[in-house]
Write a protein that binds this DNA or RNA. Structure first.
Length: 469
RNA sequence: GGCGGGGUAGCCAAGUGGUAAGGCACGGCUCUGCAAAAGCUGUAUUCGUCGGUUCGAUUCCGACCCUCGCCUCCA
């Protein structure tokens, strides 16, 4: 059963065949650490997480790199405004980013190279030097170095642009008048006043690397000259990834990436997310409103990556309910499986993986999960599911959750709540309903909701307020 | 202007040349001291509009309408 993905380069669904059998070299564009990442950023990272986890679930070994862009116009502007060194300015945002990854249960990449690391800067400078030697780049008067796009006939192949179309509507920036062609992009930016004390020495003078060369250098430096998959948001296609292809292939003389995957942007309540529109959310904003990481994860993962995702609070609420349904089913299986002596297969379990093999069709995959839930709930209602089948389903669910990671957050129940719970159980046994209700209120006051089910009292954390804005 | 996505029930969203997965919400039923939850169950003669091809189209073709994105450093 082949795994198939849509390749931005060919604009077709292709069978995925890594260069080295069983191993996947994956590069994913990471954040620019000048602020807290927003949920649009995280849609991309969650899509990449789904990709990685599914490949791993299918038995492939994935080596993933995600870069951190810690020097660019924005980070420099930020540190100068704050009056602190660049590294001091970006560090808290790096930390916050990693916390957010954990909140969303995104698997850590194997490498998080930082653009300002000495070894990477060195490699960028070396690559630029090679490009100049080969005639693909040139130094301008001020010490900036530009890539000569006319020297690379394939330029525009990924974005499916032709250079003539590009010339229309191009704004020539006054600070780049030295370029041979308006489409030429910066490999090295000469230092200027606005850079303050940010800069590195190079054969072309003091300056800093351009954004595109950062990724080329870090990707090839860690993963080698040829990657299996390179991902990013759709806005990265042009110019960023187009530039990466041009630079890298001109240096190595080999195809840079076999498969390009890009995810569509998300909108919020039907409009483009923008600070000015008041619909701009960081992950932290949502946490403050009482949503959990797995709920946001569900909301962001549940729409296919090649479709635009309309992020809404109704959708978050739907995510919460869906997860609860999944939780209930899991608990039901667990209590049934207590009597299991082995595992007996249940039909229909392969649909989940097959859906993801098909260009990460998450909607179909989730459909398969919920169909399984309904079918087996029906069977459990009829006392027609065996403990061994339940055990098998739990094992299957483990596999599913190695990809989706939808398991509940396990909050420890305070001892005090346990004690009240015991007293309440006694009261209920004695049919002292008034006392039972009083104790229920006490438990609620401590932040827990108790429900009376056939199996006895059941606790769940009281959801924080402010579910809708 | 160039290039490319979308328009499927109240909302989100799969899908196929032969008559529409799944989730949420809503109604019904079961359960239940109350409350809540949970489980089951019912909800699109219809897939933006208009034409065309076809025995048959939501699915193929054409036109149009609406919407979103990219077009030089924004995931």
């Amino acid at each position: 059963m082949a795994i198939r993905f849509f390749n931005t380069l060919s604009r077709q669904i292709e069978e995925f065949i890594p260069r080295e059998s069983g191993c996947v070299r994956l590069y994913t564009c990471g954040p620019t650490v000048y602020n807290f990442a927003h949920i649009g950023n995280f849609r991309a990272y969650i899509f990449e997480d789904l990709l990685q986890r599914h490949l791993e679930h299918r038995g492939l070994k994935v080596t993933r790199v995600m870069n951190l862009t810690d020097v660019d116009d924005k980070t420099i502007r930020g540190c100068r405004a704050a009056g602190i060194p660049l590294a001091e300015f970006t560090q808290p945002f790096k930390n916050a980013f990693f916390e957010d990854l954990d909140t969303l249960r995104i698997k850590r990449a194997d490498h998080f190279p930082e653009a300002t690391a000495a070894n990477h800067i060195e490699r960028m400078i070396a690559m630029i030097g090679t490009l100049i030697e080969k005639g693909h780049a040139y130094r301008a008067e001020d010490g900036s170095v530009y890539f000569r796009i006319r020297s690379f006939p394939n330029y525009g192949k990924l974005a499916h642009f032709n250079l003539d179309d590009l010339r229309d509507g191009v704004r020539v920036r006054s600070d780049e008048y030295e370029k041979e062609n308006v489409g030429d992009f910066a490999l090295w930016k000469a230092w200027d006043e606005a850079d303050g004390d940010v800069g590195w020495e190079s054969p072309w003078g003091r300056g800093r690397p351009g954004w595109h060369i950062e990724c080329s250098a870090m990707a090839t430096g860690i993963l080698g000259d040829e990657l299996d998959i390179h991902c990013g948001g759709e806005d990265n296609i042009f110019p960023h990834h187009e530039a990466e292809i041009a630079q890298t292939e001109c240096v190595t003389g080999r195809p840079f990436v076999r498969l390009w995957m890009h995810c569509k942007h998300l909108q919020v309540e039907g409009s483009k997310m923008a600070k000015s529109a008041g619909n701009f959310f960081t992950l932290r904003d949502l946490m403050d409103k009482g949503w959990t990481g797995r709920e946001v994860r569900y909301a962001l993962i549940s729409v296919k990556y090649r479709e635009p995702l309309n992020f809404t609070f109704e959708g978050l609420s739907a995510a919460r309910s869906s997860l609860q349904r999944l939780d209930e089913w899991t608990l039901r299986l667990r209590s049934l499986a207590i009597g299991a002596t082995g595992e007996v297969p249940v039909e229909g379990v392969e649909a989940f993986d097959l859906a993801l093999d098909d260009d990460l069709n998450i909607s179909a995959a989730l459909g398969a999960v919920f169909e399984m839930i309904r079918d087996t709930n029906r069977r459990m209602d009829a006392a027609n599911l065996t403990p061994n089948e339940a055990a098998y389903l739990l094992k299957w669910l483990e596999g599913v959750n190695s990809v989706l990671v939808f398991g509940p957050d396990l909050e420890p129940v305070p001892e005090q709540v346990h004690q009240i719970l015991d007293r309440r159980a006694e009261a209920r046994a004695a049919k002292e309903w008034k006392l039972s209700d009083t104790l229920r209120d006490e438990i609620l006051a401590l932040g827990w909701i108790v429900k009376d089910t056939k199996e006895g009292q059941k606790l769940s954390p009281a959801a924080p307020a402010a579910m809708h804005h």
